[in-house]
Amino acid sequence: MRRGSIAAIAALCWSAALPAAEPAPGQVTVVLKFVKRSSAAAATLRFDPASCRVCTPVTTPLYNADNPRETVIALAVPRRRTLELRFTGPRDAIRRVLLENGDLAFRQDRDAIVVDLPPLTQNVITAAEVATHIVEPGMVLRFEHADPARRAGAYATGRFPETERLAANALEFAQREVIRELALGEEAERRDLGRIQVMGFDTNAPHNHVDTPPHIHMHLRWPRNAGTQIGHFYLGPDGLLTHNLAGVSGVPDTERRFNRGDTFTSVGPDGKGLYFHRITSEGWLEIGRPAGRSCLIRPVGDGGFQAGAIVQCAGAPARRLTVKDDIAKGMLTVATDDLVETFRYDPDNGEMSSPTMPPPATPSNYVSNEVADLPPS
């Protein structure tokens, strides 16, 4: 693989990237999540077509689901219409109805549930996702909660990828640590390059997002997504990285394979490299600036990343990271050396419940306009 070929394609596709597909005229797709009162509830629901004669079930694979946690139903509904949709099923079996990551009003009506659907102008399909988003300057970390009770798609049967998911947990937060240390998010924001997206992989295949084999991401999402180079850093069953498959979003036939030892550089809309990734011969991960400092992420101990990660950046002390996700409690705990962060979230959808910013200062307080000192690059 020639170094820089993905970068060259990305630089050319600012205006050439394919536009997102438009919904069918007059209709949009909606996915609703019906959260069960208990895992033992036999809350199989069915859409009552008499409540909306122009609404039709969507049969796209993995857009619908039924598991111990929830029933997920996809429908094609008329665009920009206020609807009351009826679903037949066991009385009092449902405690919430979710659209995206928010609640919809619903009520019991004899042997059915009636849901108030707001007018929709576009497809709304992500209700089955269960992920927590941590937003910082120039970046967002999307932490997926791997729940065996929701397993679907490629992970529906066989060995559940627990080792790979634990490794992804540690690597996601290790990448966040590198982004902070090298001030990559602040630079992306300052130069209007887009936003850095740190992600892992789903195990419940929401809206047919099969997300296999297990992997992690750290891509720079360009404005309007045009030109975004998306790398998939794959994890083996030993919790180590194997290779990276990267391509340009919306541009077919651009995927390239980067093996251990190969360098993959992410470039911005200005054609300049912002950072690079290199999987080492051991299956570890190096991230750095093309002409500056770099950081090595290696496992805690002699095995894979499932036990945690050590981040060693040039000119800075090594930091040890461990991650624990308690899905039942909705509590994500991240330990960086002796510093422990606790992120509380809604187990039904992953929505963060911990505070994300302080309350505003009183009007008479002085507010500094100075830019905070950034670490050297």
Rank of each mutant, 00 (worst) to 15 (best):
T342A: 06
V115C: 07
L193K: 06
T121E: 04
L12C: 08
R180S: 07
H277E: 09
L62D: 13
G261T: 05
P252R: 14
R195P: 00
Q312S: 15
I94M: 07
H243Q: 13
H215C: 06
P90H: 12
L285P: 03
A16E: 08
L117R: 08
D92E: 07
G271F: 06
A43V: 01
A156C: 02
E189R: 15
P78E: 09
A226Y: 10
G304P: 02
R95A: 06
V371Q: 14
S354H: 10
W284N: 13
R150F: 03
E129F: 05
V248C: 13
L241M: 11
R344I: 01
F160K: 09
M1N: 09
M331C: 09
G200I: 04
R86E: 07
T82A: 15
A128V: 00
T362N: 06
I279G: 08
Q197G: 02
V210C: 04
A11G: 15
V135N: 06
I279T: 05
P49H: 06
Y234A: 05
F305D: 03
R293W: 00
E84L: 10
S15W: 09
F106Q: 01
A112V: 03
D192F: 08
L141P: 00
F160R: 10
R110A: 15
L339C: 02
D373T: 10
P252H: 13
T203D: 02
A205H: 11
E136F: 10
A361E: 07
G231N: 13
D92C: 00
S51R: 08
I113M: 10
N244G: 03
A316S: 12
D270K: 11
H219V: 02
I125E: 06
D66L: 12
L120N: 01
G231E: 15
A8W: 04
F201K: 13
V114G: 09
W14S: 14
H232R: 15
G273W: 05
H232A: 10
I216G: 07
F258S: 09
D66Y: 14
G247C: 02
P61A: 15
W284R: 13
P25W: 08
E187F: 04
Y275V: 05
I134E: 07
Y366T: 08
L18N: 11
P119E: 08
S353I: 10
A307Y: 04
V130M: 06
T280V: 04
R91M: 03
I279Q: 04
P358N: 10
A205K: 04
I113C: 01
L374R: 15
A24M: 08
